[in-house]
Design a protein around this nucleic acid. Structure first.
Lengths: 178, 178
DNA sequence: TGCTGCATGTAACTAGTTACATGATTGT
DNA sequence: ACAATCATGTAACTAGTTACATGCAGCA
């Protein structure tokens, strides 16, 4: 349950309300995780019942009330315990790779068209990451900067891989004609 | 729905029964996708109802009957349509990255211990991929070989990234003491 | 007047996991 | 005698998505 620990990890910095947690997800961990309200609010309730976090209602003027959640000692322990175990079952699960595998069922033109468009998507992502690094790299906290770096390095790997696939597929499909 | 298209993609090669599809998942796409029987069998039924695949019962001696599924024209069209659109919402979603982010909540020793163990896991994976490449690379079909290459390149990226993180975290946590 | 942001939530849904049930055959 | 392989399935569960509902504030 990554989402639970992502929430605990964010709350270990400082207490936050749901809306704020969602914002944090978007700006800090969007590269490697995401959440939506339909999952967030019920999960916060459950985590409070389990004693991992505790709630305080903050009444605001001209604004809806905020339910500010704070991590408890039990929550901190749970987080630390999760944190220590390395991830063993890792997988680069992405439909992009599935599509690449099934390019074997396409003709060469269609395959090349797909790879061209996918390459555009990935390089755009790569450039976006680099722009963020240039603009915010100096003021970012080092751990968020690390995640950004992971994004950069993996899009770079994808670009190189796509280049390799292009060559191989073009060679393979041409041989198939002869 | 990646699983649906993974099944269609496999059946586009040749007709298969459920058990066989599961085996194919394990040996061909396990690197980028996976499935379990609890999802597979009901999904096959649904896909048959939707007219994407059609079933034929093969009676066997000394073995349970097989339900062999074949892709239909509608299924082929559906597959092709999915195949053409590049993946735009891409994310390296893995709890490993989350854990790396939350190493900020650990002391230096704990963080180093985690990174050491995680590094062992990733290099083992990397070596396993390379062993498969050496042993089977020449006889593998080029598209499966491509997926293997993706696995290699991404574990390589993770190794380099972890190395970078080690340096940064050690520097950062030492500064924090002073 | 209408849009965006703040703030919390639910209902209905899809996707995926785990554990179990059945029962024969083949290999150690 | 026991485990693995072949073969299909279901029930109960967890995880995650999408769309909707409410309502006020501030801005163009």
């Amino acid at each position: 349950m990554g989402t639970k620990y992502a929430i605990l990890g964010l709350l270990n910095d400082r207490p936050m309300h749901g809306y704020e947690i969602k914002r944090c997800f978007e700006e800090m961990v969007s590269n490697v995780w995401s959440i939506n309200y339909g999952r967030l609010y019920p999960l916060l309730k459950r985590m409070e019942q389990e004693g991992l976090i505790k709630k305080e209602t903050v009444v605001q003027e001209n604004r809806p009330d905020k339910l500010v959640y704070e991590i408890t000692e039990a929550g901190k322990e749970d987080l630390q315990q999760w944190l220590l175990a390395p991830e063993v079952k890792r997988q680069i699960k992405d439909e992009f790779y599935l599509k690449m595998l099934f390019l074997k069922h396409c003709d060469l033109d269609t395959a090349n068209q797909f790879m061209k468009e996918q390459m555009a998507v990935i390089t755009e992502q790569f450039q976006k990451f680099n722009l963020i690094k240039e603009q915010w790299g100096n003021v970012m906290d080092p751990y968020s900067a690390m995640l950004l770096e992971a994004g950069i390095m993996h899009s770079e790997a994808d670009i190189k891989w796509l280049e390799l696939c292009k060559e191989r597929i073009n060679q393979e499909k041409k041989n198939h004609i002869n």
